[in-house]
Amino acid sequence: MTDSDNNSAHNVGFFITCLADLFRPQVGFAAVRLIEQCGCHVSVPQQSCCGQPAYNNGDDSKTRVLAKNLIDKFEQFDYMVAPSGSCAAMVKVHYPKLLKDDPNWSGRAQNLADRTYELSQFLVDVMRVKLPLKLKLKPAQFVDDKKITYHDSCSGLRELGIRSQPRKLLNQRAGISMDEMDNSEICCGFGGTFCVKYPEISTRLVDNKISGIDRIEADIVLGGDLGCLMNIAGRLTRCGKQTQVFHFAEWLLDEQPETGIAGTKPKT
């Protein structure tokens, strides 16, 4: 664990993750700002995917190629940080298993795994961020009358143990208070390619999630994984609901994010 005073020395390799790269770059910029405000230096090496789709479909040989690419790019940094629990878990939990029989790579995989963190984990557990002090945030007046809830994505929750960290950050953010749904820890039905292989089951699961959101009448749903968030947001808009969905990092900045995932506008 690092003391916040000598964070300046840290070089962080930022792994944007496919979905944030393509669909929601503002998540990346928000994350980078947060990491930089801890005094770290952030780099973004040219990158593609961590290999999760291949891995979850059982194609280990393809996954290994992608894993090696990624290790190659990121092992030079002190830390690798990603704004996604499932992508961080891929590197932290699954890379070492995937490459354990490869003498040239097993050590490198473990080494990177040890220094890889999901964003909220990095900020809270490694940088020990105290938001109002470190980030000098303005109070978030705009949320006064909004009910905000959090969806725990499965990989982050169960593979990395991320539960309190994003809530801690959001609670430190003046003006934000959270309401919990009773099914915050139950899968939203995204599951990578699951959502298109078994769309009917997937839809039922996301509908259950939305019932949970509706039960507490939340206006805003936050989470740490864009896959789940796009799934929830896409179903919400299709059902004609006005609930907005964001990555939690977007709500830790000074500016109020306007447009939610899938183009939703704030309720008026």
């Binding site: 790269d21 669909f23 770059p25 796009m230 799934n231 896409g234 179903r235 183009g263």
Partner: peptide
Amino acid sequence: TRDFPAPAQSTFQQL
């Protein structure tokens, strides 16, 4: 059953 969220104009890496 779901809308597909549109991407932003440019990718993060590009920006």
